[in-house]
Amino acid sequence: MATDEDRLLGDLAERLRHDDPRFFHALEAGTPYPPREYRHGTAWLTLAVALGGLALGIVIGHGLLIAGGLVLAGIAGHLFDPDRARARTGRGTPPPSW
């Protein structure tokens, strides 16, 4: 007979499998793989393009390129946020009120 702890661990494993299947399968196989919160490849690429566009806009004096670079830099900053999925879905606990 399964105990409450076994049921809770099973629920936790199922939630992990649903939230980040790549990490779950790597954990199950015993091969380390960073969780989704620590994978920032797209964010780094977006930041590099943003800085390139911003620098080019400053060098040639084109306001639209400067604005585009700043917008892309803001998007890249948002992609670095580890809690962006929680903010998008509204799940999770609210921040503590000091």
Rank of each mutant, 00 (worst) to 15 (best):
M1C: 09
A2G: 02
F80I: 14
D11W: 04
L27E: 13
P34A: 15
R17Y: 06
A48T: 11
A48L: 08
Y38S: 14
D19Y: 02
P95N: 12
A50F: 03
A48P: 00
A29Q: 09
P21C: 12
E5A: 08
H40P: 01
L47T: 03
T89D: 14
P95G: 09
L45K: 12
D81E: 12
L79F: 09
E28Q: 12
T42W: 09
A43Q: 01
T3R: 05
D6I: 01
H78A: 15
D11I: 02
D20E: 08
P95V: 13
E5W: 01
L72H: 04
L45V: 12
P34W: 12
G77H: 02
L16A: 08
A67T: 10
I75T: 05
A85S: 02
L56E: 08
P21W: 10
P95M: 13
D20A: 06
P95Y: 10
P82D: 05
R36M: 11
D19N: 12
R36D: 07
I75G: 00
G53M: 01
G69R: 01
A67L: 08
G61I: 07
P96D: 12
L51S: 01
D6G: 03
V59C: 06
F80W: 13
H18G: 10
F24K: 03
A67M: 07
A48G: 07
W44A: 12
R36K: 15
T46A: 13
I58L: 11
T46W: 04
S97C: 11
P96M: 11
P21I: 11
F24P: 00
G68C: 13
L65V: 01
G57D: 08
H78W: 15
G10Q: 06
E28S: 09
L27K: 11
F23Q: 04
T42P: 00
A2S: 06
L16W: 08
G41R: 13
F24V: 00
R88N: 11
V71M: 04
A48S: 10
A13Y: 06
P32L: 15
G53D: 02
T31G: 07
W98M: 10
G10S: 06
L56Y: 11
A87N: 04
P34Y: 13
S97T: 14
L51M: 06
V59D: 09
A43N: 03
I60N: 05
L51Q: 05
D6W: 00
T93N: 06
A26P: 02
A13V: 04
F24N: 00
A87T: 03
L47H: 07
L9V: 00
D19I: 07
D4H: 05
L16R: 08
D19Q: 11
G68N: 12
G61S: 03
G90T: 14
F23L: 10
M1V: 10
L45T: 13
A50D: 10
G61P: 02
T42V: 13
A26V: 11
G53P: 01
S97R: 15
G52E: 05
E37K: 14
G74R: 03
A13K: 09
L65K: 00
R36I: 14
G90L: 13
T89C: 11
R17N: 04
R7F: 05
H78L: 11
L79Q: 15
D81K: 11
A76E: 00
R36Y: 07
E37M: 13
V71L: 07
L12S: 02
E28I: 02
D4Y: 05
A67S: 09
R84F: 07
P35D: 15
H62N: 09
A87H: 05
A87L: 15
